[in-house]
Design a binder for these strands. Structure first.
Length: 424
RNA sequence: GUGGAUGUAGCUCAGUUGGUUAGAGCACCAGGUUGUGGCCCUGGGGGUCGGGGGUUCGAAUCCCCUCAUUCACCCCA
C-alpha cells in the first residue's frame, strides 16, 4: 500500500529471513569477540556534536554527512556517524585509562550518515567494531585484524585479504606530505577537479584517486619517508598476522577518510561487493583519546559493515530449519489446542496454533506453509484423549496419546532435535 | 553536492499509433475435491496507474514541474 509516511531515504525495513541472518551474525560476532577477550560496550546513538567534530576536521563523514539537531535545551547533538570517536569518549568519561591496560572493547550499533544512498550504502547501517586502547605495540594492530578477519571467515567467507599501509607518525608524516604536495603541485593542471580539491584539503587522499592513476603511479611512496619506528611497526604487525595464518599485503595507495589515523590503516574487501566497497576498515589512532581530553593513549580498531558482510555471504548463512509444529484442532477444541501448543513449546518445539478461528482445512493449509508437521486435536473416530500427528513432508500420520511429552518424543524422532535450529 | 535510470495490485510485470468499468502470474481469503494441507477447479478482497498542472472530445499512454526509488561519482561500512 502506498503511503505518505514512507521510511526515510536510505533506511531499510529488514524482514525475515534477513533479520534472522543479522541475528545469527550478531551472535557470531559476540562469541568471537568474547574469545579474543573483548568486552561489549554500548554508547548512546547520539553524542554531543563536539565528540565527532573535534576529531574530524576534514573528514567528510563528520563535515558533510552529519545528522545533527539542537534539542530543547539548546545542546547540539549528532547521531553517531562512526563508532571509534564515541568509544574513545566513553573510554575517557568512564576513566578506563585506570583499568588494566590494554582495554579491549567492541560494539554492534547503528551508524547514521546523511549521504546519497546507493548499493550497500545506507543512511542508517549497522557496524560491528572493536578497539584496543592503551597499547602502542604492533601486536595490538595484529590482534584487531585477526578478530575482524576471524569473524569474516567464521561466517563462511574464505581467506579475507587484509590490505594495509602506514601513514607514518607525527615525526615522519609531515615530510612525506610535503613531498606529495610538491609532486602534485607540478601536475596541478593535469589532474582531475576532485584531486585539485584534495591537494588543498587532504593531500593524502590524492593516492586514493581512481582517475589520475598515471599521476599516482609516479607519486612518492610513503614507505620512503617512514621513520625506523614506523617501518618496524608495520613489518612487525604483518609478521604477527602471518604467524596466525592471516593474509596481509601492503597497499601503498591505501589511505582512509578519517583524520585521526596514525601509522596503520587497513581495509578488507570482497569480490562479491565490487572493488570500491570495503567490508571493513580500520587503523591506529594514537592521538585520538588525547584530543578528547583524555590522557595520551594509543589505540587501534576497525569498523565492519554488517549489511555488507551479509550480502557477501551465501544464502545458507542464517537459514532456519523449518521443523516447526502446528497444533490444529477440530471445532470445539480450540482451548485444548492452545494449551497443547504451549506444552509442546516447553518441550522445546517451535509451535504454532490457530489464532483466527479457522476451519480445520484452513489450519492445515496454514500448517503446510509454516511447519513440517501438524498435531490435530479433537477426537473424531479416534479414541478420546488422543491426537493425530501428521508428517506434512511424508504424508504419514498416526494416533498418539495427547500428552506433550509423548508428542515431543515422536516429533524429535521424526524431525530431529532441532526446531529453532539455525543452520550455517 | 554532480550525473544517469525507473515509478501501474503485497511481489514480479503486461498495457499495441492516446479510445469504454486498468489486466496477468504469484501471494492472500473463502468454497469445491481430498478422512486432513500441497495439485486441480470456482469465487472474492485488494489499484488516487507516485503527486500536481497542461494538451485533448478523451491521458496509465503526450508535454512541463515535483516527489520518491535506484545506480554511479565524491566519500565510506
Amino acid at each position: 500500500m502506498r503511503t505518505e509516511l514512507q521510511r526515510p531515504r536510505g533506511t531499510q525495513d529488514i524482514l525475515a529471513p534477513e533479520s534472522w541472518r543479522i541475528e545469527r551474525l550478531h551472535r557470531l560476532a559476540f562469541d568471537t569477540a568474547r574469545q579474543f577477550g573483548f568486552e561489549p560496550l554500548e554508547t548512546p546513538a547520539f553524542e554531543q556534536s563536539g565528540v565527532f567534530l573535534k576529531v574530524g576536521e576534514s573528514t567528510d563523514v563528520v563535515q558533510h554527512e552529519r545528522y545533527a539537531f539542537t534539542d530543547a535545551g539548546g545542546v547540539s547533538l549528532t547521531l553517531r556517524p562512526e563508532g571509534t570517536a564515541a568509544v574513545a569518549r566513553a573510554y575517557v568519561e568512564n576513566g578506563l585509562y585506570n583499568a588494566p591496560q590494554p582495554v579491549r572493547l567492541f560494539y554492534w550499533a547503528p551508524m547514521f550518515r546523511r549521504e546519497r544512498p546507493q548499493a550497500l550504502r545506507y543512511r542508517q547501517h549497522i557496524q560491528f567494531g572493536a578497539e584496543v586502547f592503551g597499547s602502542a605495540d604492533p601486536s595490538a594492530d595484529a590482534e584487531v585484524m585477526l578478530l575482524s578477519t576471524r569473524v569474516v571467515s567464521l561466517a563462511g567467507l574464505s581467506d579475507p585479504v587484509i590490505r594495509v599501509n602506514s601513514l607514518g607518525c607525527s615525526q615522519c608524516r609531515p615530510a612525506y606530505r610535503q613531498a606529495l604536495v610538491a609532486y602534485y603541485r607540478d601536475r596541478e593542471h593535469a589532474i582531475c577537479q576532485d584531486c585539485r580539491l584534495r591537494l588543498e584539503q587532504n593531500p593524502l587522499r590524492l593516492l586514493d584517486c581512481k582517475v589520475d592513476v598515471e599521476a599516482r603511479a609516479g607519486a612518492p611512496d610513503v614507505a620512503e619517508y617512514w621513520c625506523t619506528a614506523c617501518r618496524a611497526h608495520l613489518e612487525r604487525l604483518m609478521e604477527l598476522v602471518r604467524s596466525a595464518d592471516g593474509v596481509i599485503q601492503r597497499d601503498s595507495h591505501l589511505v582512509r577518510g578519517f583524520d585521526y589515523y596514525s601509522r596503520t590503516v587497513f581495509e578488507v574487501g570482497h569480490p562479491r561487493l565490487g572493488e570500491a566497497t570495503a567490508l571493513f576498515g580500520g587503523g591506529r589512532y594514537d592521538g585520538l583519546v588525547e584530543s578528547l581530553d583524555g590522557p595520551s593513549t594509543p589505540g587501534v580498531g576497525f569498523g565492519m559493515g554488517v549489511e555488507r558482510l551479509l550480502s557477501a555471504l551465501n544464502d545458507g548463512f542464517g537459514a532456519l530449519s523449518a521443523a516447526g509444529c502446528y497444533v490444529a484442532h477440530r471445532p470445539g477444541y480450540a482451548t485444548e489446542a492452545f494449551e497443547l501448543a504451549d506444552r509442546l513449546r516447553r518441550q522445546g518445539l517451535v509451535c504454532y496454533s490457530d489464532l483466527m478461528d479457522r476451519s480445520l482445512k484452513a489450519q492445515i493449509r496454514d500448517a503446510g506453509r509454516r511447519a513440517v508437521g501438524v498435531v490435530i486435536v479433537g477426537a473424531e473416530t479416534d479414541a478420546p484423549g488422543q491426537v493425530v500427528v501428521r508428517n506434512l513432508v511424508s504424508g504419514e500420520q498416526q494416533a498418539l496419546a495427547g500428552d506433550a511429552t509423548v508428542i515431543a518424543d515422536w516429533w524429535h524422532r521424526k524431525f530431529g532435535s532441532g526446531s529453532a535450529v539455525v543452520v550455517g
